[in-house]
Nucleic acid binder design. Structure first.
Lengths: 175, 175
DNA sequence: AAGAGCATGTAACGAGTTACATGATTGG
DNA sequence: CCAATCATGTAACTCGTTACATGCTCTT
């Protein structure tokens, strides 16, 4: 299962949609970091179907809107994805997917799911940031100027994530 | 040419290295977001060779360190990559690669290359951030809580980039 | 001499890109 | 009724992943 697959499941959790609808949704929103090309979407939907996560209902005529619905298996797979623990590896290499997961958590329980996500997210980012700072202390002097500056942006980005996670936990307390 | 290809060219610009050296360099540094698996590195080096960007010198015996050197064509390709203009599309979908480019600019001219990069980078991020803010104004109310919070992190990240670019321009003035 | 780690290679597979194809619907 | 656009599909290609294979070097 790839990020795009889960994105499709998450979008379908809000009700059946056609492939075309999904393409529009992705292309017209900040999700456009993901691909909305037909060559990505339709094969992805077929894969989801072959795994039983999704049901395609063929229209009678030729080439019209073809609604896709989430199955029970699909719901379950989505649930597992949303509940996966946040690892440091994810934070390093899959930052986008983590954020995607969080963005679609609302219907599945704010107090449990979202809170533990944020706690783990903050911890994992803090742990890696600490390693980065250490690396910077040791090797920062050897790196040429632009490399050092790029490194500093990296540090800032992780710091932003940590502050954001704390801010979100505060927001969730307002319930 | 993929990001990994340019990363290899950039690393080789500091002198010939073996594939194994390159793998270590990538795995032991904050570049570890990139793959350092043999199945990625060695085929990538072969591709660079087949395009004439790199020269592999076979060692006489069997399976030993095999130094890889940047050719003139390779230097030129690297130069073009570093000089590519920063587009809004890059900022949206290729943020990592942009930062990679900047990180390796030092030897190629700070006052020209790095300055124009930063200026374009700031402008492109600001332009997209403006669109994101607009989107948030119009549709923010319809998005469930975690989606909205994820959106806010996105906004923060772009803002961080912009502040960083300005800070860097200030640093470059200290020459 | 044996085994751990060094260094490179490769095959099967999955998934996205680009580009093109195809049939239906709608507007002028 | 013709063109534009809607909606889906597909083939060729590229690249990275995973897992395994191969041979060398160095230590003990």
């Amino acid at each position: 299962m790839t990020s795009l697959g889960y994105l499709l499941l998450a979008l379908l959790a809000q009700g059946p949609q056609s492939g075309y609808d999904l393409r529009k949704l992705i292309g017209d929103s900040p999700l456009r970091a993901y691909s909305n090309s037909p060559g990505a979407i339709y094969p992805a939907l077929r894969r989801l179907e072959s795994r039983g996560f999704v049901q395609l209902t063929k229209p009678e005529g030729g080439r019209r809107r073809q609604p896709v619905a989430l199955t029970e298996n699909g719901k379950e797979s989505l649930w597992h994805w949303l509940h996966k623990p946040v690892t440091e590896e994810d934070v390093i290499s899959n930052g986008e997917e983590l954020l995607l997961r969080f963005a679609f958590m609302s219907p599945f329980g704010l107090q449990d799911l979202a809170r533990t996500f944020l706690t783990q997210y903050e911890a994992a980012n803090a742990a890696y940031l600490e390693k980065l700072r250490q690396h910077y202390q040791e090797h920062g002097a050897d790196i040429p100027l632009t490399g050092r500056l790029a490194f500093e942006l990296g540090l800032e980005q992780y710091d932003t994530r940590i502050r954001w996670a704390r801010h979100c936990l505060g927001e969730l307390d307002k319930d």
